[in-house]
Design a protein around this nucleic acid. Structure first.
Lengths: 330, 330
DNA sequence: GAAGTCTAAGAAATCGATTTCGTCAAGCAT
DNA sequence: ATGCTTGACGAAATCGATTTCTTAGACTTC
């Protein structure tokens, strides 16, 4: 009715029972049908909503999970977030999205907040493999690493097979007839960047023509880094005729650089990790290693919800497959 | 130290003072230097973090604000979210991101959660102009509408001048020599879609050649809707030679359709609301009405923080200007 | 030196829901 | 009929920090 807050005491008074009974009704404990009727009517009439803060303080627990990601403006992570949210909502949980900009300090702050807020669990795309989740573990809060794994064996993780993806991306370029296949990957400190590069390396190592160190560029997983790296590659005395690019943002930059050089992505040979959500028509001819972002999120959430529900089996690592294919149409 | 939770009582015991004094130290109230030293040392030693749930229950208030958006996978909203987050963090607040998929029921649920969680305020990009914020108002929780305004005059809002944007977008196409300028806008129930269309309408109304009703298409603000609308326009007996597209996603679809028809965006004449984050090289020649997404978020957060701090002046509406320009380079 | 401020800090109440504990009465077996 | 179980439910403790309310000194002021 009124806007003022309604407490369990007021409902109890109106229904003529004790607050304990109201609580029992709201939580499905055994109550006589008569009491239940009275309480429900009173709650309805007063538009009673239980105060979650009080409940949480008492229960030491809340139906909220934290999702900590490095870059909220990267579509890969928003798709992942959507996967997490879908799964969590289905299980009755809300998701709090925390953006770290790959800053370990901010990540650490968010972990503290998750603890202090009594969140039920944390899904973390770690800024660094050495990210410190020990406080969570010590307090027995479930944690799942997603996209990138952590340096510790006791934490659940959901990742994709990055090495296989890098390998198949490079192989598909060779199979299409390209011979000098370069690689633009992310920071060497980031696991996915390293593994994707290793896949490429494995494919190129054997081919006499290709095992050239100058064809490998470490960039920063951002648009400008991709542009710069591609520009450098094209300026080589013996430039590549194709490249594996380790994420979507750098691919956008690389496309730019190709365009500047008057090359078309199809003729040049480009294989990219992850989708280019807005580059719809230009991406024809680009090979895409499908990163199942939403599925990653769903799998991570499912795993976390299991843990929250009490599953305390040994740590699991779920590795999703990457498909790759050539884009013909969106 | 240990993982177990540390309470204010343990800190008090170790420091040899009362819990009240510990609280005073933690909150900057007057305490003797000696007590302060003792408390800080004890807190440090035990790695004490105040339990936010308990604090919130007592204070009836938390340093968390909710940001409710219709589509987390739309870069416009993530950029807006980043603006909110930056500003909120600077003010010591955390942001909880809630995604509604334009579903009024989910929106309503999130509003209830914000209330039950004692959040300090809500920034809402309403799914519908009739979205019900009355519960928030009744409970005196600050609310700011962003991007789209609400049907009520007592709520702060931060928007852009959509009509002016639509007008200048259309004008710039006419000025560039195009004569049949179409418009692909969003659902007629969405305010921004309506206003952008009206701007276009105003520009075309006077030009004899252009005031053609069939050149106006209502779509759904999504990629496929844009593609379809553009395909329909191109199939007209007398197709347009240019178009104003009311958001970024539909523009991606429209570009697709143009490509299918063998037209280049520059030759066709395309003016788009909002940036196309990944279509870097193809967007040359496209006219972009800059939507200052991040600034919208920052302005909304600033306004909300003012309200939270107690500002209870009359409701304000902040209208940001849209700049438009032609893309030459990313 | 007596009366009147301050100040620091402890004791205890408080926020609102949950949960333990205990009581009372009804139901059942012997 | 007696003793025992069972179920409903109220009273009161609890979660942990904040916030009165008090009290005991220390310091002014005339």
């Amino acid at each position: 009715m009124a806007g003022a807050k309604v407490t369990i005491y007021q409902v109890a008074a109106l229904a003529g029972v004790s607050p304990a009974t109201v609580s029992r009704v709201m939580n499905g404990a055994r109550v006589s049908p008569e009491s239940e009727r009275l309480v429900r009517a009173a709650a309805e009439q007063l538009a009673f909503t239980p105060n979650r803060t009080a409940r949480r303080l008492r229960r030491q627990y809340s139906e909220v999970i934290a999702l900590i990601i490095p870059d909220i403006e990267n579509p890969f992570f928003t798709a992942l977030a959507r996967g997490v949210e879908n799964r969590a909502r289905a299980g009755g949980y809300s998701v709090v999205l925390c953006n770290t900009d790959d800053d370990p300090v901010r990540e650490s702050t968010y972990i503290d907040i998750a603890l202090a807020e009594h969140m039920a669990g944390v899904i973390l795309a770690p800024a660094d493999a050495a990210s410190d989740v020990s406080r969570l573990v010590a307090r027995q809060r479930p944690v799942v690493a997603v996209d990138r794994s952590l340096n510790r064996a006791d934490i659940d993780a959901v990742t994709v097979d990055n090495r296989a993806g890098g390998l198949s991306a490079a192989e598909s370029l060779f199979a299409a007839g390209f011979s000098r296949v370069a690689c633009i990957t992310g920071p060497s400190s980031v696991e996915t960047a390293q593994l994707r590069m290793e896949g490429w390396q494995q494919a190129t190592r054997d081919r006499s023509e290709a095992g050239d160190a100058e064809l490998l560029r470490y960039a920063d997983y951002r648009v400008d880094g991709g542009r710069l790296a591609m520009a450098e590659l094209l300026a080589l005395r013996e430039p590549p005729d194709a490249a594996v690019v380790a994420n979507n943002l750098m691919a956008a930059g690389a496309l730019d650089a190709l365009q500047d050089a008057g090359l078309s992505p199809a003729a040049f040979g480009l294989a990219v990790f992850g989708d280019l959500p807005f580059a719809s028509f230009e991406r024809r001819g680009i090979r895409v290693v499908d990163l199942p972002a939403r599925e990653l999120g769903e799998a991570a959430a499912a795993l976390l919800l299991d843990r929250i529900a009490g599953d305390d089996g040994p740590a699991r690592t779920v590795v999703l497959r990457t498909d790759h294919r050539t884009r013909e149409r969106q």
